[in-house]
């Protein structure tokens, strides 16, 4: 999975492209380290081009969300596809995250 991070004063945006599955999870987790370190800011996960997520990916998202809750930041998830939305629904993640489309 490709991860591109852009920073502004108040926020960090990570664009995730491809599959967030078990084989890619460890590497993605490392690449998202800057977001973990800035969990007092607004963290935006741009999932417009993320095709798939499994529980290894959900772990990463929940870790970020927990860190933001502790540090006083927030996590916004941008544009998930129907299949990922389904996974979010099954696991209760729809209630844990702010999800924006557009």
């Amino acid at each position: 999975m490709e991860v591109t991070i852009t920073k502004t004063e108040q926020s960090l945006t990570a664009k995730l492209v491809g599959r967030l599955d078990t084989p890619s999870a460890q590497e993605v987790s490392q690449k998202l380290e800057p977001l973990m370190e800035n969990a007092d800011k607004e963290l935006i996960l741009d999932c417009t081009e993320m095709s798939y997520i499994s529980s290894s990916g959900l772990r990463i998202l929940l870790s970020l969300r927990k860190q933001a809750a502790t540090k006083g930041g927030k996590v916004v998830i941008l544009n998930i596809n129907d299949e990922i939305r389904q996974v979010f629904m099954m696991t209760g993640f729809l209630n844990l995250f702010e999800i924006k489309n557009g």
């Binding site: 529980s55 772990r59 929940l62 969300r65 099954m90 209760g92 844990l96």
Partner: peptide
């Protein structure tokens, strides 16, 4: 899955997803 962000354990969703699907 009704737990809050603070209460939710990080893992344990794998087999749960299998059973759901």
């Amino acid at each position: 899955i009704s737990l809050s962000v603070e209460e939710r354990p990080i893992g344990g969703l794998g087999i749960f997803l299998v059973k759901n699907i």
